[in-house]
């Protein structure tokens, strides 16, 4: 099986089809808190006049989700895992203009 997302298997189902879980390392998580960029905020404010998608914010949240995922992967690699199963995403707005992105899952070793 070739892995498409780097060297580690990421999935949000609770197993890896066709492979067996041989070791369980427990929960791994990654989080980032991002504040809005002033320039992007102004652009988003302008865009908000006409509604629709706010591309600046979409990019911002995508970047932070990527970063949170990378932190989770780093943690899993440190434990010696080669797959993370049962991944969940959660986002919460913790203050005006700042959002927390939290990603968590179970690090396992599959064979």
């Amino acid at each position: 099986m070739d892995q498409l997302s780097g060297r580690i298997i990421l999935t949000n189902i609770d197993r890896v089809p066709g492979r067996e879980i041989v070791e369980h390392y427990g929960l791994v998580a990654g989080s980032t808190i991002r504040a809005k960029h002033v320039g992007k905020d102004i652009m988003a404010g302008l865009k908000n006049l006409f509604g629709g998608e706010l591309t600046g914010y979409t990019e911002l949240l995508n970047e932070s989700r990527q970063e949170a995922t990378e932190r989770m992967i780093a943690q899993a690699k440190k434990k010696g895992a080669n797959a993370i199963i049962n991944i969940r995403f959660s986002t919460s707005s913790i203050a005006q203009g700042a959002a927390e992105i939290y990603v968590y899952g179970t690090a396992v070793k599959v064979e």
């Binding site: 498409l4 997302s5 298997i9 990421l10 999935t11 949000n12 890896v16 979409t58 949240l61």
Partner: peptide, 10 residues
């Protein structure tokens, strides 16, 4: 092959 995919819109 398998992998996590996601899509976001604000």
């Amino acid at each position: 092959a398998m992998g996590l995919v996601e899509g976001t819109v604000v």
